[in-house]
Design a protein around this nucleic acid. Structure first.
Lengths: 210, 210
DNA sequence: ACCTGAACACCGTTCAAGT
DNA sequence: ACCTGAACACCGTTCAAGT
């Protein structure tokens, strides 16, 4: 049979040839967004993608491996967005604020990803090297920015790991409270982000005479 | 043979007469602490307490109701510890730092409670009045302290809800990162808590001339 | 290689029945 | 009132078998 005349009567499934993995990940994200991580079932994902319940095990060792892949992807995207904000802003004080907005914005825009990244579903004593690399990379973007600002005399010249973790804690706190619907006591969300980042900056700014 | 005539051969179960609820809650906490909220199964709790799988439904409507009860209890304890720290410290600047230490300390000492309180297992659009009251109470303890400090000219006279949420975000961020094992990049945990609370204070302190 | 159905050992929850 | 066993409709995962 020549390739020319063998047009298949049944069009091949779009996930064939290696993109089943991608389709499963996308479907997982949609499901988590709609029903929470708790509501994620492998069977339903398979059904939605149009594949048997066990097809998923060709691409992921188990359910946790799926979630680890989601988290890994999330850290990579987060790092990209942090670096973008820092670079686009010109590596100065305002760019740092923009990084903070980008961090919280990522979490609020991708709550499914963020919850899997930090919800304790993955990190509990599991050592996935790829996940570790991406998580480290995102943290490093923050460290790099702070180091530059310290060099320029904008921020206090203090232990960089302590300062970066302090900053991370604040944006992580705002992000998780927002995602978990705990901010109904406060006014507009944008006002909170602006206020919180301004107070953060005051707390770590270098106020010595030049 | 028997030690005494009135000694029952089968000692009565300790959970009878109303304390089965208490026993179930305690066992749930132990299990969550050991295996995470994910690993909590009603059947195992029943078995551990020495009761059938369905006995639990006499005291809780369903699994979520059990978790809601755990969360409610957690908010109540948290409020008590925050108020204690604030009162014992004499309602001043140092007492506020002590409140911060108490908040983070509660989370780290009671990760099971804390995870259920904020892990998104309960709060998603569920309106439990008792839970709401206790959560509000804990937040109010923070608001009250900040209001007093604003009155005394220690903290900036800014929107109290914004400021309280900012403070809450930071301690919540430190607490959750600690619980989720994300702070291995930083040095000693106590140093981080001290540093972070000091930078928080600088950020919201009133620096006007008297 | 990639996918499938059947099967296994679990879940949360309901319910008729016991004391 | 409080507790029980049996039953139902689900899970994640394994495995022999198909293409």
């Amino acid at each position: 049979m020549s390739p020319a005349k063998r047009a298949p009567r049944k069009p091949p499934r779009p996930y064939h040839h290696g993109n089943l993995r991608r389709a499963l990940l996308d479907e997982a994200l949609v499901t988590i967004r709609a029903e929470g991580v708790e509501g994620l079932t492998l069977r339903e994902i398979g059904a939605r993608v149009g594949v048997s319940r066990t097809a998923l095990y060709r691409h992921f060792a188990d359910k946790r491996a799926l979630l680890t892949a989601v988290a890994t992807e999330g850290f990579r995207t987060l790092r990209e967005q942090l670096v973008s904000a820092w670079d686009a802003g010109g590596h100065d004080d305002a760019a740092f604020q923009a990084m903070g907005v980008a961090y919280i914005g990522f979490a609020v825009a991708n709550p499914s990803h963020y919850r899997v990244m930090f919800g304790g579903f993955v990190h509990a004593e599991v050592h996935d090297p790829e996940l570790e690399v991406e998580a480290e990379g995102a943290f490093q973007a923050l460290v790099d920015a702070l180091a530059a600002l310290q060099r320029d005399g904008v921020m206090r010249a203090e232990d960089i790991a302590l300062m970066a973790t302090h900053v991370w804690s604040l944006v992580h706190g705002v992000a998780t409270l927002a995602i978990d619907g705990q901010l109904h006591r406060t006014g507009a969300f944008d006002d909170l982000v602006r206020y919180s980042l301004a107070r953060l900056r005051t707390g770590i700014a270098d106020t010595r005479k030049a």
